[in-house]
């Protein structure tokens, strides 16, 4: 039996697994597709300012911003992978007002999930991919997770499966209310004039990444969970980007992609315990802020899921 089963190999699940692994807990990660290839891959990786966040999340976000450079440094030391953490100026344009933040952090989400997976596997933590969860069942002494490829038992299970979480939880009789918000994004390269700041207005943002790409994002299409990038989406992003930063017209398009963010009805993520199940924990519904909130979510949850263990060992 494993101590902790984590369902969802996105940034939230992987960060939690890493946090537990560092505390010598045994962990298994179950992922529907391939680790880090879902919504996490679609994110731009800005560690957003509080202006974009609801007040309830400010403390959690502040903790995460503090933890990110430390996490990136440790991962780089363990794996040799540079997660692209850096801080740069951030110019927010809102109607008549402009606000310049001198240093806002960002991370490269793809490198981050790659580094996390590498670090986990090096520590002997298995990340099982292509696993479709069919049922979660809690008994007095353990939790049982059934899937198309096998059955796992553990002391706790944490559901960090983004939009997929709701259906899984329903099999254990737990209901949460989430919906998908599709986002489309593109990456361009602009020769000659490097953009040094993040630019952000009401309809678009431009994020220069460590590898020289500039990310342009992102559309928000509530209740749309289709795959693919629409012409209308790209057109609106490019028009808005050109208005915000005219030199972008000379850039070359490198990649377009989309993802589905898990949003909750309340607008706040589900993090922590459930009222009806002792061994089932939640970390989902982070909407646009999954990357930002991952380290603090992992910190809170790793402490929470370990409590049950301490109770039982005693």
């Amino acid at each position: 039996m494993t101590d902790h089963i984590i369902i969802g190999g996105g940034v939230i699940g992987l960060t939690l697994a890493y946090s537990l692994a560092c505390q010598n807990e045994s962990v298994v990660v179950l992922e529907r597709g391939a680790g880090g290839q879902g919504t996490s891959r679609a994110a731009a990786g800005m560690l957003a300012t509080d202006i974009e966040l609801r007040e309830e999340l400010h403390a959690l976000a502040a903790r995460s911003r503090r933890l990110y450079p430390l996490l990136a440094r440790r991962l780089e030391r363990e794996t040799g992978i540079d997660c692209g953490y850096r801080e740069q100026p951030f110019l927010l344009k809102r109607k008549e007002r402009e606000h310049l933040f001198p240093a806002v952090g960002q991370i490269d989400p793809r490198r981050l999930t790659t580094a996390l997976m590498y670090a986990l596997r090096t520590r002997g933590i298995s990340i099982e991919e292509q696993v479709d969860i069919t049922r979660i069942e809690e008994s007095d002494d353990f939790i049982r997770v059934e899937s198309n490829t096998g059955i796992w038992t553990g002391r706790t299970v944490t559901i960090a499966a983004g939009r997929g979480s709701q259906a899984m939880l329903a099999t254990a009789g737990i209901s949460i209310a989430t919906y998908g918000v599709k986002g489309e994004c593109l990456a361009v390269r602009l020769a000659g004039r490097p953009l040094r700041s993040i630019l952000f207005d009401d309809s678009v943002y431009l994020v220069p990444k460590a590898d020289g790409r500039i990310l342009i994002g992102a559309t928000e299409l509530p209740h749309d969970e289709t795959v693919g990038v629409s012409v209308a989406g790209v057109t609106s992003l490019l028009h808005a980007a050109e208005r915000l930063y005219p030199p972008i017209r000379d850039a070359f398009i490198e990649e377009v992609w989309s993802g589905v963010r898990p949003q909750t009805i309340s607008g706040l993520p589900y993090i922590g315990v459930t009222s009806s199940a002792r061994r089932i924990f939640l970390a989902t519904g982070h909407h646009r802020h999954g990357i930002l909130l991952a380290p603090a979510t992992a910190e809170v949850l790793s402490a929470t899921v370990r409590l049950i263990q301490k109770e039982e060992v005693r």
């Binding site: 560092c22 430390l70 440790r74």
Partner: peptide, 11 residues
């Protein structure tokens, strides 16, 4: 410090 953090100590 990194070795201790990797061995189970929390920050």
């Amino acid at each position: 410090i990194d070795a201790l953090l990797a061995q189970g100590y929390t920050s």
